[in-house]
């Protein structure tokens, strides 16, 4: 179980309809690859976030599969077109089954 996991998201408070906005997301996570060994030579088990999704009013905006080579505290920046006011729902899926959520509303 990864500890101290905290999602952070930056979405503009408002946009005009049809405007492409920049969304930034960051989650603190060690992203242990499973390739490293501890001081006594035993492999450290893999513990990463393997999937990240963003939905707008239930419609998928982005869906990402993450692999072990991704570095600690994964950061994603992407653009989305906003047709109407609504909520962006962000979800991160951890190897250990934990799911981290965040939601941000945007006005038009």
């Amino acid at each position: 179980m990864a500890s101290g996991v905290k999602p952070r998201v930056k979405v503009p408070k408002s946009a005009s309809a049809g405007e492409a906005i920049v969304i930034k997301t960051l989650i603190s996570h060690p992203m242990e690859s499973g390739q490293r060994k501890d001081s006594s030579g035993n492999p450290i088990p893999r513990s990463i976030i393997n999937r990240f999704t963003c939905e707008f009013n239930g419609q998928s905006v982005i869906d990402i599969t993450m692999e072990p080579a991704i570095s600690t505290n994964p950061y994603f920046e992407f653009e989305a077109t906003v047709p109407e006011a609504g909520d962006f729902a962000f979800t991160w899926y951890d190897d250990d089954g934990s799911v981290y959520n965040d939601t941000q509303s945007i006005a038009v």
Partner: peptide, 15 residues
């Protein structure tokens, strides 16, 4: 501030 990875530690320190 959002792009600064050092701010993650700041968040942790607030806890």
């Amino acid at each position: 501030t959002f792009d600064n990875p050092g701010m993650i530690a700041v968040d942790q320190a607030i806890d």
